[in-house]
Design a protein around this nucleic acid. Structure first.
Lengths: 99, 99
DNA sequence: CCATGCCGTCATTCTAATACCGGTTCAACC
DNA sequence: GGTTGAACCGGTATTAGAATGACGGCATGG
């Protein structure tokens, strides 16, 4: 096919990424952080609210730099499963991706 | 404006990213690595050849995972300036981004 | 009252991701 | 020598989404 429309899992993964970024921003304003990262405030808002679930690599890198975050840390924090008790419901539909 | 068309600097940054990824792939085939990362071989080829200069965050993350690379390492390796003698030509138009 | 900060929506342009095609190179094999 | 296969490349086409701007709305606080 051509560019399948993003699965619900992928969208929720984007939401988690947004939450992590917003938390890391703390009290600073969107405008300030966006300017510091070299992106527009509109873009930052879309990423934080999860409306841009799969931002570009260098966009995230710029944000991580502006927020003092490690890229690997970021991946870990917005990672897939929050320790769902290994052995319970297999939950069909998980996407490892970070393996 | 609306999505300015990627500067030459951004494109060369994508080429460096591709080179690093290709080097990390070593002898393995594109098809194998792409499958391991959960992306198509076509996409991997476009990234490696620099024809997709700004890939998605999670796409790069999947590739880094498949290749055993650290995201921060990746950023450092495909980084901006190769130590251009601090104090020479200021080169107007550099994009820190990774700061 | 007015500024600040965030949100929703609409509109726009460029690009990522995917697939398919043929072409090339290089090796092994008949 | 011819051919077969693997692996990569360049081009083209398609769809969905990133990135950006602009306008209006809604709180909170000076």
């Amino acid at each position: 096919m051509v560019r399948n429309p993003l699965t619900p899992e992928e969208r929720r993964r984007g939401e988690r990424l947004g939450e992590v970024l917003r938390e890391a921003r703390g009290g600073r304003s969107m405008v300030a952080v966006a300017a510091s990262a070299g992106i527009s405030a509109e873009t930052l808002r879309k990423i934080e609210t999860g409306r841009a679930p799969t931002p570009a690599f260098f966009t995230v890198a710029a944000l991580a730099g502006a927020l003092g975050l490690s890229m690997d840390e970021l991946l870990t924090h917005c990672a897939p499963a929050p320790a769902p008790v290994p052995g319970s419901l297999p939950e069909p539909g998980v996407l490892p991706l970070t393996a």
